[in-house]
Nucleic acid binder design. Structure first.
Lengths: 234, 234
DNA sequence: CTCTGTTTCTATTGACCTATAGAGTCCGCG
DNA sequence: CGCGGACTCTATAGGTCAATAGAAACAGAG
């Protein structure tokens, strides 16, 4: 039996699969079998759901397999270990999350609109990746140090981009000097995470409204007078 | 061997112990043995530490016992089950936390000062009960419904008190009508929890300063101009 | 010192879980 | 058709863990 884990680092899958994906020969007829990477991602999402509900240690590989409709042993065709499954869930959670932040920081909207976008994007991650981001937040520390390096790097990158957003605004003089960019960024992340955790498995919440409220809280606090509302200069 | 779990509901301990505590006969000589309830609380705190570090499912009863300096089997003199230990940790976490909130709401400080006190008290819980509150936040959902009733009640009570704080200020007209008290209260709690989680095991953070910044963020946002700073009327 | 209740210990049971090995099945392709 | 790789299955090894039972150690009161 050929191992599907020929290459150890890339999350893109095994070599033979990659070659066949690159191969110019079109893969014949209509009803194709579901590609490896596609089913593997389904496996990752299944793991995310189970980890979110029961926690990493509380979840069993049997739980994950059942949700996928296969047997416990078969799961190891897609993961080398339960730990790897958790790592993949965390990586998946950060993938689009970080990408969207990059787009936001490079846009030329006003500061206030960027903050709204950040909050909106963050909260939306709890819809799209659903359980994955929750798992990243709550369970990633159960991974051993070596396995957390990439995850830590991505997380720090995200935080730093948000900090720089505040720093730039402070440098422009549009925000008081005494604001601490690190504090502000961490607060935005924390606020979004705590609301996001409540969002999971509660589909009837008005996201737009919530995002507006969150960014408004961050910019103006909950006690501002309308005529004092912050407006950043473009 | 008489079970120390004669009464099933009270967290105050077994009947014979309670009677001896009530007994008027003074309990003789100098070096007293550590009372049951006192050691039990040490056991709860040991459980809190271990649960905080490894998670409920990741922690073993052996871990808890070792931290307490006894053997795994002996732990069952203080807990009927691992689950009960988690429940007790959560109850302990909320005990003083809720009590302090009651004091704050009944004080006659200004709204702004009350919010500062709330934040200060919340963050301080992460120092005093240290791991317990973190365990409550992260692990309580692993308890079965029946065991969570009291915990849910206490948590809701806390949140409601905070909501009422905002509602009263809105009614006074000191805060804009369009502020949602539920949103504001939940945001305060979420912000404090996310900062609190970072506080655990990081002793060199200036708590006073952090509390001020958090309450300032909530009241005025991070982008206020000094002359716009919110001041509630007494 | 002896008696009694308390606390801790050792030893074990039975359940459960991860990971692996190797056989079996399916399907597209030549 | 029948080969070969991809995928899934069964079965099990090897280990860990929660919880219990019963013996032992301990401490204070009479």
């Amino acid at each position: 039996m050929p191992s599907p884990f020929a290459n150890t680092t890339s999350p893109e899958g095994n070599i033979s699969r990659m070659e066949s994906a690159v191969s110019d020969k079109p893969l014949t007829t209509g009803k194709r079998r579901e590609p490896y990477e596609q089913k593997r991602e389904r496996a990752i999402r299944a793991a995310a759901t189970v980890f979110a509900e029961k926690g990493y240690h509380g979840a069993t590989t049997k739980d994950i397999a059942e949700r996928l409709g296969i047997r416990q042993g078969s799961l190891y065709y897609y993961f080398r270990s339960k730990e790897e499954a958790l790592e993949e869930v965390c990586i998946l959670a950060l993938r689009d999350y970080v990408g969207r932040m990059e787009n936001i920081t490079h846009s030329n909207k006003t500061f206030a609109d960027k903050i709204l976008d950040v909050v909106h994007s963050h909260l939306n991650s709890y819809r799209d990746d659903n359980e994955a981001l929750k798992v990243h937040n709550d369970q990633r520390l159960y991974l051993p140090e070596e396995r957390r390096e990439r995850i830590k790097r991505d997380g720090s990158h995200y935080r730093k981009m948000l900090e720089d957003l505040f720093r730039a605004e402070i440098a422009k003089g549009a925000i008081p000097q005494n604001i601490d960019a690190q504090f502000a960024a961490q607060s935005v992340i924390g606020l979004c995470n705590s609301w996001g955790a409540l969002l999971v498995r509660d589909d009837d919440i008005d996201m737009e409204r919530l995002a507006e409220r969150c960014s408004d809280l961050i910019l103006n606090g909950c006690c501002y007078r309308p005529d004092h509302t912050f407006q950043s200069q473009p």
